[in-house]
Nucleic acid binder design. Structure first.
Lengths: 220, 220
DNA sequence: AATATTTTTTAGGTTTGTCTAAATTTTATA
DNA sequence: TATAAAATTTAGACAAACCTAAAAAATATT
């Protein structure tokens, strides 16, 4: 089955919101997609008739099993293109998302699978988000917030919570990146800021607020 | 300026037809785009108001200078993606065109220029058609039909005239490809069929009709 | 040159995805 | 629990890109 760009954007948005809040509603979806609530209702009806959505007027909605499957296909496309843009075309981290928004709607399955192979079957995109495989399986990674780490704890940056330009700016400036090795040297009680060592080289001081936005894989 | 997928497809189709016939008309464009003449008229008006087309009702139309510029941007995108698909993702020759039809509408200039760099600034796509550069310049290649070559003449396959599946089948079977070196061993007067050597290895007999569809660069 | 044929355009309709404004239903508050 | 507020849906409209059927213009034929 092939879906329109609009349909795909709705499915994807609903999927992402469902990971964050327990009940997605018309208002929330309207504000994420920057459309009016009436437009949402129209599309909900359409997705319902296509069996991508469980929806009862006034009673809320959520993706059906099929809707979920479709969402993961779209997310797979998006993240593989992001990986391609960053890894092969040397775009920076912050630039890839927007371009992938267009590329993700190119829906030829064979193309995406060959792209996956060409890239060496990557498991995570440049933001540290997992890339679903051909069957829609995603590799869950155990990660905790950097702010939760104790002194002497070590780990690897896996993901940044928000992708806003403001935080990107700061992180890039700190010479931190997805994959960077972090060691916590000291935690200051006064403001809970931390001194950390990045990749065994640079020592930096970061605020509690920043540490709250950085996920760390606590691996070995 | 950004144009819709439909607008881009019209511009591209008009451009290509203008290379082949001296006056493109509504009927011809309708049949190439598989739409009705009335739809063509609608779009012609729209492209006229956007100054991409010189158009007078009943008097015919042709791309304006700006329309031409836009066409070359679209063709650049299409052919770069074709090159990527064939070269990097290892798709065959015949498969790439259709996928590139979707990819060509992803219009981020920076993306296309970085793709160009990544691919090593290729001059010709997998069908042997020239890829316009950033300024819309295309490298013209001197080529003649294989059927026009005399005995002992040598050259390199640059392009196949028609891209139909029927001819693709035959050419692939002959182990001929864009770039193959050809030497004419003999031309039979009876049916004008030829015996040729491909890449200094295989010797094949090909019909006049096939030779009429293969372009050869007569280089050095 | 008059008529027939073909091409092109116009007029009016459809679908998709959006909108505004009004009506309805649910939820919150006094 | 009655009423106010917020969320949701319905009704009707609009632009883009297509369609069919009919009218108008250009071209070909006798």
């Amino acid at each position: 089955m092939k879906y329109s760009v609009s349909e795909e954007n709705y499915i994807k948005a609903i999927y992402h919101l469902q990971q964050e809040v327990d009940r997605v509603n018309t208002m929330l979806l309207a504000s994420t997609l920057e459309t009016k609530p009436a437009s949402i209702t129209d599309m909900l009806k359409k997705l319902k008739t296509k069996r991508l959505l469980d929806y009862k007027p006034y009673y809320g909605f959520k993706l059906s099993a099929e809707g979920n499957r479709v969402a993961l296909v779209i997310i797979r496309r998006h993240r593989l293109w992001e990986f391609f843009l960053a890894e092969k075309l040397k775009f920076s981290w912050e630039e890839v998302h927007e371009m992938a928004e267009d590329l993700e709607h190119v829906s030829n399955k064979k193309l995406i699978d060959k792209l996956d192979a060409f890239l060496g079957y990557p498991k995570f995109d440049p933001h540290g988000d997992p890339i679903p495989d051909q069957d829609g399986k995603i590799q869950k990674e155990e990660h905790v917030l950097l702010s939760e780490l104790k002194v002497k704890a070590q780990g690897r940056v896996t993901k940044i919570k928000s992708h806003s330009t403001k935080i990107m700016d700061l992180i890039a400036h700190q010479q931190m990146n997805i994959g960077s090795k972090i060691t916590v040297k000291k935690v200051f009680e006064f403001d809970e800021s931390m001194e950390i060592v990045i990749d065994g080289k640079t020592t930096k001081n970061i605020s509690k607020q920043l540490a709250n936005n950085i996920f760390i894989a606590n691996d070995k």
